[in-house]
Nucleic acid binder design. Structure first.
Lengths: 341, 341
DNA sequence: TCACAATTCGAAATCGATTTCGTTACAAAT
DNA sequence: ATTTGTAACGAAATCGATTTCGAATTGTGA
């Protein structure tokens, strides 16, 4: 069981390792003849250069680190899938790490990735990320940074997002058009831009349809879990404020809210109509099935890699480069929880 | 922005790189004095050795590849979590790849991991994996192989599984004790051991309780999706065979079956009682909520890494080594879908 | 005082691939 | 015939860390 190296191939063909390397890497100072011999032998031996050794010279690890806040969230699963599909074709390996929405963990993960000499870091920020030094460090290290979904407005890099504001608007408008006049909004933590934008969409829709915006009807949920949704909904109901619709920035909290409504004998969609966000797995199997906003995760993942590659290539060729921001449209999936009948 | 290397530290302290290396790696031929100087400076510079360069000599990449069949399956998410938590402490990085239950893809993934020179491969086999050459190759390459959940009986390695047979038995017994006399079994594809074992548990339970085992009541589902469960259940119902319970080897097919039952106006749990497998996310939110078998994924992940480390260490010290097989117990989660009332 | 052992350190080889630069051989140009 | 140019290849340095082996220094015992 011999290890197959450049040197081995060189010896077999009685030429120098440098020539073998050049033949395999498309240098021009190799004759067509020897090039063919090398390529053929390499293929037949199933040779591929040792990535670690190659890295020492090229500084390319062909590894990309992807940071996601959750793993159970199907949207992120789709994004990863999109990245994977694109990256695979170019021979990149993907390391997925999850931050659990924690800034501290996120910082550690980034350090880990930099130690591993990844070529790129794709990140969706944790909820409580307030400081961006760790991401500045990524750029300083010459590593390509791509932000997706939960991005920072301040930090420069290429970005891939959905139109959260418009999505919030559409969801709310849908509720209004189906007769809701008193719509509660479950918003996320105050910091992340997605949370702000979805909220603004909600608010704008109310204004456009001449409904009064009432801050008391905005429930801020920091944890975004079913339990939290259940708890907060119970609290809200106990305040006896009239409402006939809910737009939640997450399906998961919406599901908790649904449980609370059931407990209080409020019928969905008859008494209260509900729209969530992100189209979680099995939300179509609930009773009632949950209306939601669907984000094109796979396409977003594809785009992330595309922007990454563009940046890598311009760096190699030392071409000037401009950050891009791609905004994807979402689509509303209307199910039982917000239907008219 | 200078890169911090061994050489740099050596120059700073006016000693040789080799001495620095030895100081950091606990060699005995370094004086306590110089050792302290080196360690202190290294710490203050936040130095950590370049992993790729170190690999060239040590042949340790400190990377583990984990192959899972699905990503949306919460059980596997838990296993990965368990591996991650353990591996992190020892400075290992985890690459998670998913095979989509495809043998061809699985083979490619393994090749990819070997090219990356991972130290270990943890794998749960794809449904249709019939050939094991790619896994033999892992062992031949000197890479530690750990099999978990869907394992091969033939291939030698350390293994981490649950007692599938007993789990199938308990689930079926539970249905019997709650009054079921005609229990349908959704089994998975014929090949994987988990599929066989869960089926055998089902069969054994019937026999122990003097119920007739009827092959016609065993529905083989190759795809294990909700759609497939729905389709197969419809087919089965159209055959007009009496039944009052279902034990499904997967929650996902069980959910499809539930939809079919609803469509045919069969009440759960009144007319039919249902038990699934794996405790998928949100199965507790369904109406009725789904009874299921819970596997201790996190603990299994922990164990995988423990066995890996044991093997690595004995290889280093050239101690004799014996493969271990750890069998975990499952627990039945009884919810509405199989309750008496 | 001398022989020898223990301690501490450094020089150099090594891992495997890449890349610069120099050398050869031969053809074309003068 | 001599110079120039080009195609094709190889020698050697390099990336950053590890590790073997030998050298220098110090200490120990006879």
């Amino acid at each position: 069981m011999k290890k197959i190296t450049l040197k081995y191939i060189a010896k077999e063909l009685n030429i120098a390792p440098s020539t073998v390397s050049k033949a395999l890497n498309g240098y021009s100072d190799v004759s067509a003849n020897t090039k063919k011999k090398v390529v053929d032998l390499a293929k037949s031996l199933n040779f591929s250069p040792n990535t670690q050794a190659a890295f020492l010279r090229t500084r390319e690890s062909k590894i990309i680190g992807v940071v996601i806040p959750h793993i159970s969230h199907p949207f992120f699963v789709n994004v990863v899938k999109g990245i994977l599909d694109s990256a695979e074709k170019k021979g990149y390996l993907i390391i997925v790490l999850k931050s659990n929405e924690s800034y501290d963990l996120e910082k550690k993960l980034i350090e880990k990735l930099l130690k591993q000499n990844v070529d790129g870091v794709f990140i969706s920020l944790a909820q409580d990320t307030y400081d961006l030094k760790h991401l500045e460090a990524v750029k300083k290290a010459g590593v390509v940074l791509i932000q997706y979904d939960k991005i920072s407005k301040i930090l420069e890099s290429s970005k891939v997002v959905v139109d959260d504001r418009n999505s919030g608007y559409l969801a709310t408008e849908h509720l209004i058009k189906n007769g809701c006049r008193n719509i509660v909004h479950f918003r996320g933590p105050l910091l992340p831009q997605v949370s702000i934008d979805r909220f603004l969409g909600y608010k704008n829709a109310l204004e456009d349809y001449n409904l009064i915006f009432d801050p008391k009807k905005v429930i801020t949920s920091n944890k975004m879990t079913d339990k939290e949704g259940f708890r907060l909904m119970n609290d809200f109901i106990s305040k006896k404020i009239d409402f006939d619709g809910i737009f939640s920035m997450s399906d998961y909290t919406a599901i908790g809210a649904l449980e609370s409504l059931k407990k209080h004998n409020l019928l969905v969609p008859d008494d209260i109509k509900v729209v969530g966000f992100s189209n979680w797995l099995l939300t179509d199997k609930l009773t009632p099935s949950l209306s939601t906003v669907n984000q094109p995760g796979v396409l977003m993942g594809n785009k992330c890699f595309e922007l990454f590659l563009k940046e890598v290539n311009s760096k190699k060729k030392k071409i000037k480069f401009k950050y891009e921001k791609k905004i994807f449209k979402t689509n509303l999936i209307i199910r039982e929880s917000s239907s008219l009948k």
